[in-house]
Write a protein that binds this DNA or RNA. Structure first.
Lengths: 217, 217
DNA sequence: GTATGTGAAGTTATTCACAGCG
DNA sequence: CGCTGTGAATAACTTCACATAC
C-alpha cells in the first residue's frame, strides 16, 4: 500500500519517511551555516545511496542544480511544503503521564510546525495541573477544544487498555491523525491515520542486532 | 541491507520490526487470558496479510499447529528468544532531560527485558538528582558503570549538537547498540548499531497523509 | 472444515549507469 | 568535470495459492 492520496503518482511510504530524515539533516546544516548540499552528503546521513535521495526528491519535482547540488534553505522549504508543515498544525495530547509532560516541554515540535494546544486526562488529581505551556483538562472538554482550535492531529499516551476507546473519542471529535504511543492497535475509520510509536521495539531491534552479530562481521 | 549477522539465511529488517509488533499484541492477548491465536488475527493488528505473519515466523522455525493456530504463551517465548530479550539487558540513558525522566519512570521497559541501570549528564545542577529508580551521575562515571553492569545498550537523549561526541564515548565504553533520540546522524564503527527515533517524523508523516487525503478516498 | 508452511508469482523499492546540464 | 534526473536492471519484499496436517 502506498499512502498518498494525492493526484499525481502514488508516493512510497519509505520515501516519505526519508523526507523527514533529510529535513532533520538539512535543519542541522542550516544551523551550521551550510548553504549547499549534494545528494551524496544527504545520503550519508540517512545511510542510503545518493541515487535514492535524488529519486525521493524527484517524486515531487526538480529541486537541484546539475553540477552544483541543492540549496539547503530552498530544500528545507520544499520538503516542508511536501510534508504540509509550512503552516502550523494544532495538536492535542491525551493521557497526562510522564511522557505527556516530556512532550509538552519539548521545543522541537513547535519549531517544526506542531503546536501542542491542549492536554487531557480522566484522573481528577491531574486535572488543573500546569504542564509546560498548557493546563491538563478533563477529557470531556476535549471535543470543544479540538473544534475551537481546529485540531486535526492528536498524540495518544494513555495505557493500552484505554487506547481504543480514547481513539474513538478523538475520531468522533474530528481528529484525522493519531500518533499512538499505546502498545495496542487501533481500529478506526480509514480516513483517520495512525502512526504507531513503539519505543520498546527500538530496543528490541537493537537486542536482535547485537545478539545476532558475531565477531568478524 | 538485511540486518542479520546470524548463520542462517539473512533476516529482512521489516520482518524483525514486525516481530516486535506481534509481541505487543500477544502480550495484550495473554493479559486478556487468550490462549490461541491465528495468523489472521495477528495480521489484523499489524495491518498486514496473514501470509506475511506466517512467513515472518517461518524465517525462524515452525511454531504453529495446522488447523489450530499458535499458542499465545509459546509464541511470546519464541519471539523473545528470537529478539534476544529472554535474558535481561542492562541499559543506560545519557542526557537527563524531561524525556530521560519519562523513560526512567516507564515500567514497560523492565517488563520486556530492559533494565535502566544508570543515567548520566554533564549539567552539575542535575547530578545527584533522583529520577525514578536511579540517580543522575556525571558522565565521567559512565564508563565504570557500563563495565560494571555489563551494559551493552544505551539511550541517547542529549541535544543534537552533543550527540556525536557522546555516542563516541558510549562506543569507547563498549556499548554495542544506541537508541538515538537526537535529531543528528551518528557515525560510529560498524559493530555499534544505531536505532534512530524521530518523534517529529511521526507527526510529519501524519501531516503528509492528512494533507494529501482528499474527500472520497 | 480450519489454519499452517511454503514454492511460485507478483509487486514494490533500490541501485545502476549514463545522458544532460551547469 | 561534477552532480542531477531518470530509464533500465536488479534486488527485496509481499501476496497468492495450495499441499499438508490437525
Amino acid at each position: 500500500m502506498t499512502s498518498s492520496g494525492g493526484l499525481g503518482g502514488a508516493i512510497p511510504d519509505p520515501s516519505v519517511r526519508r523526507l523527514s530524515a533529510y529535513l532533520r539533516h538539512l535543519e542541522n546544516l542550516a544551523a551550521s551555516g551550510v548553504k549547499r548540499v549534494s545528494s551524496r552528503q544527504l545520503a550519508e546521513y540517512v545511510k542510503g545511496g545518493d541515487a535514492q535521495v535524488r529519486r525521493d526528491l524527484a517524486l515531487f519535482g526538480q529541486f537541484g542544480r546539475r553540477g552544483v547540488g541543492y540549496d539547503v534553505e530552498d530544500l528545507i522549504q520544499v520538503i516542508r511544503t511536501i510534508l504540509g508543515t509550512r503552516a502550523q498544525w494544532n495538536v492535542v495530547v491525551v493521557g497526562a503521564g510522564q511522557l505527556c509532560q516530556a512532550l509538552l516541554r519539548y521545543r522541537g515540535f513547535k519549531e517544526r510546525g506542531f503546536a501542542l494546544v491542549g492536554a487531557f486526562d480522566t484522573d481528577p488529581r491531574k486535572i488543573g495541573t500546569q504542564c509546560g505551556p498548557v493546563t491538563i483538562r478533563h477529557i470531556d472538554a476535549m471535543e470543544d477544544i479540538i473544534r475551537k482550535h481546529e485540531v486535526r492531529l492528536a498524540i495518544l499516551t494513555v495505557p493500552a487498555q484505554a487506547a481504543q476507546q480514547t481513539a474513538e473519542k478523538l475520531a468522533a471529535a474530528g481528529i484525522e491523525g493519531i500518533m499512538n504511543f499505546a502498545g495496542a492497535g487501533l481500529s478506526l475509520p480509514p480516513h483517520v491515520h495512525v502512526s504507531q510509536v513503539d519505543l520498546t521495539a527500538h530496543l528490541e531491534q537493537l537486542s536482535f542486532l547485537v545478539s545476532s552479530t558475531r565477531a568478524g562481521q
